[in-house]
Simulated scan of single mutants.
Amino acid sequence: MRIETNHERGDPITVGFVLIPGFPLMSYAAAVEPLRAANTLSGRDLYRWWHAAPGDRAVQASNGVAILPDVAVGAADLPADRILVCAGGNPASFEDPALARWLRRLARAGVTLGGISGGPYILARAGLLDGRRCTLHWEHIPAFQESFPRAEVVRSLFEIAGDRVTCSGGIAALDLMLTLIGQDHGPGLAAGVGDWFLHREIREGLSPQRMAPQQRFGVRDPRLLRVLSAMEENLEAPLPRAALAGLARVSVRQLERLFRERLGTSLHRHYLAVRLDQARRLRRESTLSAAEIAAATGFSHADELARAQRRRRSRAAG
């Protein structure tokens, strides 16, 4: 299989979008629209793009919007410089051997392959991220690491690692594409495209995906912030209350009071909620067994996790 690169022919750079059913429309739009804007602002066709989808049928985004593919999975002799796989929902449950074979053939032909949001799952399942530095949406990371330990996962907005490009999704796809446009055609055009979309600053790839705890929880107390961060970093082996109090440099009683005054909940209940949220993500995004999910979130066995989940639902209902 020979892929003709546009650089060889002096043609526009061609980007292929492989859309997986349930793909996030925002991530896809943030990736394709900068290409259109670059063409408009430059007055030239700097980029072209095409779409492919499993089954070669119309593919629906997570919100129901459908896009018709114009390239068949497995197609040969097509122009391609970069191919970006866009996936969302539960990419851990998606498997398509024909698509995996096609992606491997494209990689061997020298095409740059990328994944957006849950798209790296598809690349990893095809064996294309082994030993590679990559990122994906924070919601998918825990299950991804369990399934693909040979991939080097970082919690960044996007990663450009040679012929592999990965992106956490959402608006980060815009930052990725602006960076690529800057590499292809200079920072002036990239800035112009960013300005077109009212995106005043192109964020670096290594920028963190999530808001800091200070922003997410609306607290400024450095003692609480240290504890909140430690909780999120220690789920498999939850830290005891005394250790958390030590991080805050206060007594356990004082820490409990801080949680109730600033967060409106107890220390134990907040930590439990963080672990249960993680368990829910793993159940939705992975094929791990109930026992494995329990172990990964600090529960001694699956029954203990199930009881905690039932109590939470009961409190919410009451």
Rank of each mutant, 00 (worst) to 15 (best):
I3M: 06
T5H: 15
N6E: 13
I13P: 03
T14Y: 07
G16W: 07
V18M: 12
F23C: 14
M26D: 05
A29M: 09
A30W: 06
D45I: 14
L46N: 09
W49D: 15
A53Q: 03
D56T: 07
A58R: 13
Q60N: 10
V65L: 12
A66F: 14
P69K: 14
V71I: 13
A72R: 15
A72D: 12
A76S: 07
P79C: 10
N90W: 15
P91E: 04
F94A: 05
F94V: 01
L99Y: 10
R101M: 11
R101C: 07
L103M: 05
A107W: 04
R108N: 09
R108H: 11
G110F: 01
V111Q: 05
S117P: 13
P120Y: 06
L123H: 01
L123K: 02
G127C: 02
L129Q: 11
R133T: 03
T135A: 15
H137P: 00
H137I: 12
E139K: 02
E146D: 13
S147H: 11
R150I: 00
A161S: 15
C167L: 11
L176Y: 01
M177T: 06
T179Q: 06
I181Y: 01
G182M: 02
G186R: 00
P187H: 05
G188K: 09
L189Q: 03
W196N: 07
H199G: 02
L206W: 12
S207R: 08
P213G: 02
L224K: 13
E232L: 11
N234F: 09
N234Y: 12
E236M: 09
A237G: 13
R241H: 07
A242Q: 08
L244I: 07
G246E: 07
G246F: 06
R249Y: 14
V250I: 14
R253Q: 10
R257K: 11
R260G: 08
R260S: 10
R260Y: 12
R262P: 09
R262C: 11
S266K: 12
Y271L: 10
L272R: 03
V274G: 05
R275Q: 05
L276N: 09
L282K: 01
A295D: 09
A295S: 09
T297Q: 05
S300F: 03
R310G: 02
R311F: 12
R315N: 12
G318M: 08
